[in-house]
Design a binder for these strands. Structure first.
Lengths: 108, 108
DNA sequence: GGACAGTAGTGTGCAATGCGCAGTACCGTG
DNA sequence: CACGGTACTGCGCATTGCACACTACTGTCC
């Protein structure tokens, strides 16, 4: 099965939600998402999303020089990002409700 | 707000679900989807989806000559389509559950 | 009778986005 | 000092929803 298409439009939301809990860096965020159930998410997708959200002003970033390994680019959420998270969470909720309702319209 | 991206991967499912209840033609299906809550769905998207599903063998089609207006191309679901519907419905349900859970991981 | 609105379907090109893959860089271990 | 693991970046691709333009048929109103 291919949940790729379902991810579209939700990855932003998922990333924001994860970062909203606690700042994180790319690799870590990928792990958190996978642990959270989005096991099929690709790392490149997450990095791309982080960059996009950063460009949009939804995230801040600061580099923490390596302690063991390469540097880590941490991301934190901005007020803009928080607003976006809230908005998209509402969108998602109402959308999910609508779709679920549509699916149940069929009794037999 | 823009639910465009959310629609991706769900339109197939929505169309299958609607047709599963009763055969329908493009214009009619668009109306049913909009009435069902997907108010922002574009007509071209639905026609495109119908063609795609038909090519994939998930739908049959038969033309009913006009009674009042141009001809109508009706679509019905095939066993293949039914299987796909079932599969995608499960995918959706589990995906929606996962995402909802992710979103609630953040208490504050 | 002819312009026009409404219904129904098709084709084209575009934009967004997730992904695979390759590449870079840094660390500790054998 | 080669190698595997961690961390990040860049490139090109495929899918898919959408706007827009176009065809075609019917009934209505002037």
């Amino acid at each position: 099965m291919d949940t790729t298409q379902l991810l579209k439009g939700v990855l932003d939301l998922a990333v924001l939600a994860v970062v909203d809990g606690e700042d994180g860096y790319g690799y870590d965020i990928v792990r958190r998402l996978r642990d959270g159930g989005l096991s099929e998410v690709g790392d490149a997708s997450v990095y791309g999303t982080l960059r996009r959200l950063y460009s949009a002003g939804a995230l801040t970033s600061y580099v923490v020089p390596s302690e063991a390994g390469p540097h880590r680019k941490y991301y934190g959420i901005t007020p803009t990002g928080h607003a976006q998270l809230k908005q998209q969470r509402d969108d998602w909720t109402s959308f999910a409700t609508t779709v679920s309702a549509l699916l149940q319209e069929v009794p037999a």
